[in-house]
Design a binder for these strands. Structure first.
Lengths: 169, 169
DNA sequence: GCTGAAACCGATAGGAA
DNA sequence: TTCCTATCGGTTTCAGC
């Protein structure tokens, strides 16, 4: 049985080429960098470099190219980490919860957790009033929630979308 | 005194034009969408649309254009939220802590918090062994840390960089 | 202010070494 | 394979409305 047939592999066997890592690092910093620039920086000519990038897009290693906006300049001062526990946990309740969570634009991230917490959410809101309203009118309306713990952030010290390719690959 | 002189305004007085919101929404989804396409979708012609986008870039509302990579396809299975408390808090200790935190590529986000926690970190690692190593060799080496609480995520339910422009502006 | 056209620049593909 | 060239499409600017 061949090993390259699975659509999503959790653990890639290939330890990824060094030049590939360089390419991905540059693209994580700036999606609009010219192929020629990347090629030059990693001592490669355009065409092969372009083909590698293209392959990453096909493979879904590069998921998307997006614009990152300045939260504060848009008047969204609040980031809240909310830990949530449910009353009863079974397939139905989990699916229902997740379906409703995903639909809220204010919830920018959601993870299931090990340990004492069932879910961890990252929520963005304009200010504390808007957050309160969101919890009351939207979040708390989801059935089966037992506990919500809100951890409110004051200042953003670091925020990047760049994965630690250097140290973790 | 004019009001447009401050470099960073926390609360913009301008409630941002509806068409501008549409533009930003589209760019949050796809950084490579053609200006002509945006213009068409919001019933505007290219040039003024382009000028608005350009202004957003100048103003820093659009911070950067980046490629988002697939964490799992790169073999980074772990996201950890680590809450941290320091022993003594003063300007020196805070600045020292933040300076060292920012330098770790594994720490992708860091916030100061209200309430019981001093800092909340979001950390990305290959697996639990790598995370343990990172905490031992890097994080715990920062002086003045009293407590680290690690909240380990299992599954990513939602993850977006899109700010809730519709509901929070 | 908006529109439409024209010039420029870079990405993509194909062909030669 | 890499290099080089042609084509295509998008961005950007500018003249006219």
């Amino acid at each position: 049985m061949s090993n390259k047939t699975e659509a999503v592999r959790q653990k890639p066997e290939k330890p990824i080429d060094k030049k590939d890592v360089e390419i991905l690092k540059l693209l994580q910093e700036d999606a609009n960098i010219a192929t020629a620039d990347i090629a030059e920086r990693i001592n490669m000519s355009q065409s092969p470099c372009w083909r590698r990038i293209n392959q990453f897009e096909k493979d879904g290693v590069i998921k998307q190219k997006v614009c990152l906006l300045d939260r504060n300049k848009l008047g969204m001062e609040l980031v809240v980490f909310a830990s949530i526990n449910l009353n009863t946990i079974n397939r139905k309740t989990l699916e229902e919860f997740e379906k409703r969570i995903v639909a809220f634009p204010e919830v920018v991230e959601c993870y299931t957790m090990t340990g004492m917490i069932d879910y961890m959410l990252k929520i963005v809101a304009k200010d504390i009033q808007h957050y309160e309203q969101f919890v009351r009118n939207n979040l708390a309306e989801i059935p089966n929630i037992r506990e919500i713990h809100s951890h409110v952030s004051v200042t953003e010290i670091k925020m990047t979308t760049q994965l630690p390719l250097d140290t973790q690959l």
